[in-house]
């Protein structure tokens, strides 16, 4: 059984493989026929708008919006959990919807509160 279920997914693997099959030769051909002039080391500097780069490209860098990131971690799971309920809605008794509504209410309250806090904080 497990093998059959896995075999369902095999076309995705084929498709991925075909994607590689198409793109790798494209890169290789491009590498073969394109010019390679390497006598100017400045050409290989990272982009800095025509200036000599200053500072590191990979640094400790934080966007201010991590309130949303924290919420995302929670609510993404919730969203997928709702799928499990949604797909079997017809086979469940109607009374099974009530707990889900309760679950949603709790989640909405949590989300509303966290969004409220995030908004009140302003700049994160």
């Amino acid at each position: 059984m497990a093998g059959e279920t896995a075999a369902q997914f095999s076309p995705i693997i084929y498709m991925l493989g075909f994607g590689l099959l198409v793109s790798i030769p494209a890169l290789v051909i491009s590498r073969l026929i394109s010019p390679r002039r390497r006598y100017n080391p400045v050409k290989f500097l990272p982009m800095e708008c025509g200036q000599v780069p200053s500072g590191e490209g990979r640094t400790h860098f934080m966007m201010q919006y991590y309130a949303y990131i924290l919420m995302f971690v929670v609510f993404d799971v919730m969203a997928i959990f709702l799928y499990v309920w949604g797909v079997s809605l017809f086979s469940l008794p109607r009374s099974a919807t009530l707990p889900i509504i309760g679950f949603l209410a709790i989640m909405f309250a949590a989300m509303g509160y966290s969004l409220y806090l995030a908004g009140r904080k302003g700049i994160w």
Partner: peptide
């Protein structure tokens, strides 16, 4: 370190 200096221009 957090501050990143971005050069806008000339390119």
């Amino acid at each position: 370190d957090r501050l990143m200096t971005l050069s806008v221009g000339p390119q």
